[in-house]
Each structure stands twice: as structure tokens, then as C-alpha cells.
Design a protein around this nucleic acid. Structure first.
Lengths: 208, 208
DNA sequence: CGTTATTTTAAACGCTTGTTTAAACTGACT
DNA sequence: AGTCAGTTTAAACAAGCGTTTAAAATAACG
């Protein structure tokens, strides 16, 4: 395992757990068992390291996500549940790519939206616009009556639901375990969240 | 205006904008135009200052919220939209209490859930349990068929939607402004989010 | 007025942060 | 063996952090 990858793996886990601001380079290099200066040697700066961690996932995910969304659009009786279900397989495939990949990535996404006054949001929307574009197209086909402004809000609400849920999914799964006395997986969360966001996006238009 | 309140006001605005971890005491005292040591003199520590900022809002909000939820439960044909609409007036009343009160408070709530590994979540759920209890009762009355487990998940999804949206509401409002070329308020966000979460919580039960 | 008590102040404390430096080491190619 | 690029290392850097100290200023009260 190369120094570069040791740093990326350690940084990913710590970033997901404690946020970007909350994780120091010394924690990362200590967990990766490499020298402190190695981060700046291989990545240049902490900010570039954050980008590298996110890019590793996005490069894996975005083509799968795009083609899954294009595929689902071929369905002529497309429902919103179909659209959101298209995310499941690409997201779960991140677990093959790396241990805890799915939940790490979703937590990182959540961190990126609230930490670091939005520079990661800029990074994602400008570097990977294809995912968002195809997603909007799919929602439009499944719910053509939805106006552009309502679409805008509801997609952001959906992003919030998913990102917040996943960034605290470990805690939620623990609470749910002790409350309902049965073991739960990340797939249980996904199974529950899809009807929720599908119904939210598909809500009737609000009267003005 | 007392030193204590000058600190609270400055801290509130900066915390809402840049998060708890992202705001230093020196920024706060400089904006409040008081001495750096005044924070530790009046509040003891930064953590206690955070609690004080949140308490100032919760003490104002929680009784209004509780009675609004109890009131709405008297409705015999209670809908989920009714339940969520019960939040509007108490939340907007924070604007009378303080400039930008509503949006500051909701942003702080969002920060508290993602910053500071959940100590604020513990603080709110243990110090103000009446709000949550009455909210659950109202949802149960509006949608009795909803099972306990689905209720658990959907209330957390809703919390995620609201908290995430509000913690980035300034950015969202800016984007929406430039996209739709009209000015937007926090009340526009609220008007859009209620049908969304009401439909999400009211979604049909997922088939197993 | 004089004497407490409360509040404000400037300065320093010890610590952590991201980054840089320059020397040491590594492995491959001539 | 000798050279040289690539990599790793220990040490230091300046800057920022939350907190503490002790003296100065202000307020309150007999």
C-alpha cells in the first residue's frame, strides 16, 4: 500500500467521522502511520487532500449513477420511486470498492455541505454536472407537472434528507436497535428513505 | 446593551454563519466590541456560551411550540399539513424577538446537529423533551396507521430535511434568487418545505 | 468620601494548527 | 561504484486557538 493511499484511507475515515475542520493532519498521518510532511508532499495542502478524497469516490460513482439514471428514463411509466431507486445499486456498489464505502461517502457528502462554507458544493456541482442534469431529467419525466421552482426546492430538501440521515446514520441505527430490539443495516435506512423522499418530491403543488 | 448581550448577539450571528467550530472567540469579541476575556468571565467557556445562545432561543420557543402542538391536536380531522403548519407561527415569532431570529435559530439548530459530535443534540432532547413528545402525539393522531418504526425513521428524515435546509438556507436563497430572478425570504422556504415533509411522513407504508 | 464588589482590560500562557525547510534515505540506471 | 530523481524524515516555523492572570477601571453601598 502506497503512502498516498494510506493517507487517503485514513483521511476518509476521519473526515467522515469528525468533519473536515474537525480533523487535523496530525491525526491523519498518525493513523496512516506516515510522516506529517507526507500530506503536503503528495497533495500540496489539506484542501487538495479533501478534494482528492472526494474525487476518488466521485470518479467511481458518477458514471454508474449517470447510466443508471439514463436507463431508468427508458421506462415509459416512470414513477418517482423508480427514479430514487436508481441510486441504490450504484451507492451500494461503493461497498465493493471499499469497506464502509457507501456510508463513508454519504457522510462525506454531508460534511461537505455544511463544513467549509460551501467550497465542496461548488467543487461537486462544477466537476460532476452530469449526475445532477440526468437526475433532474428523470424527475421531470416522472412528474412533469412539477414547476421549476418547486423542483429546485424539493431536490434540495431531498439532498438534505439523505445527507443528514447518512451523516448521522450510525447513531440512528444504534437508537433504532435499542428501541426496536432488532439489528438494522444501511439497507434498512435506504428502504425507509425512498418512500419518504419519493412522496416528498411527488407532493401536490402548494397553493399560493 | 450589556456586555453579556453584546457577546450573545455577535456569537449567534457568527455561529449561524460559520458554525461553532468555525468561529473563534476573538471573532466574536471583536464583532461585539468587547474584550476577549469577557467571554470566559461571563460564560466560563466557549461550550457554555454555545449553550447560552441556544437556550435564549429555546426558552422563548419551546412553550409556544408546545401549546401550538397541543392546540392543533384539538382538531378532529387533523392532517399532517396541519401538524407541520403549527410550527410556522412560533418559528416566525422569533423574528419579533430578534432580527433574523427565525433563520438564525434554524441555522444554529442545523449546526448543532452536525458540528460538535452531537453534544447539542443531547442538550436539546434532554432539556426540552416536551416539544418532541407533543409533536409525536400530533403525528400519531394525524396518521394513526403509521407504525412506530416508520414513525421513528420519518421523523428523523424530517429533522434532516429541515435542519439541513436551514443550515444552508442563505446559500439556497442566493442560488434561487439568481435562477428565478425574484427575491426570496425564509418564509418562502417554509412554505415550500411543509408540503414536502407532510407528504414524506404521510407516504404509504413500504411493502416488506 | 471611603471601602467593598463587580466588571473591564492588556498581556501572557500553553497548546494545536497547516505549512516549510533541509537533511537523510531509497532504489534504479549508467 | 556513482549519480540522480523520488521519497521520507525530524525539526522548526508563524499563526491562531481557548483560557488564565493580575492590575486597572467602574459601580454600588454604608
Amino acid at each position: 500500500m502506497s503512502t498516498k493511499n494510506k493517507i487517503l484511507d485514513a483521511a476518509e475515515n476521519l473526515f467522515a467521522d469528525k468533519g473536515f475542520n474537525g480533523t487535523s493532519l496530525r491525526e491523519i498521518t498518525s493513523q496512516a502511520e506516515v510522516n506529517l510532511a507526507a500530506v503536503n508532499y503528495h497533495f500540496g495542502s489539506k484542501k487538495e487532500l479533501i478534494k482528492a478524497v472526494m474525487s476518488r469516490y466521485m470518479n467511481e460513482l458518477s458514471p454508474r449513477l449517470e447510466s443508471a439514471l439514463i436507463d431508468v428514463c427508458r421506462n415509459d411509466e416512470l414513477s418517482l420511486v423508480d427514479v430514487f431507486s436508481a441510486f441504490i445499486e450504484p451507492l451500494l456498489s461503493l461497498n465493493d470498492f471499499k469497506d464502509n464505502g457507501t456510508s463513508n461517502f454519504l457522510q462525506l457528502l454531508g460534511r461537505g455541505y455544511t463544513d467549509s462554507q460551501g467550497f465542496l458544493r461548488w467543487f461537486l456541482t462544477t466537476q460532476y454536472p452530469g449526475v445532477i442534469d440526468n437526475f433532474v431529467l428523470a424527475v421531470q419525466k416522472a412528474y412533469p407537472e412539477l414547476g421549476a421552482e418547486e423542483m429546485f426546492w424539493r431536490l434540495h430538501f431531498t439532498m438534505g434528507t439523505v445527507v443528514f440521515t447518512m451523516s448521522s446514520s450510525d447513531a440512528l441505527i444504534d437508537i433504532a436497535k435499542s428501541d426496536f430490539e432488532r439489528s438494522l443495516q444501511i439497507s434498512d435506512v435506504i428502504r425507509n428513505v425512498i418512500p419518504y423522499v419519493a412522496a416528498g418530491v411527488g407532493a401536490p403543488m402548494p397553493q399560493l
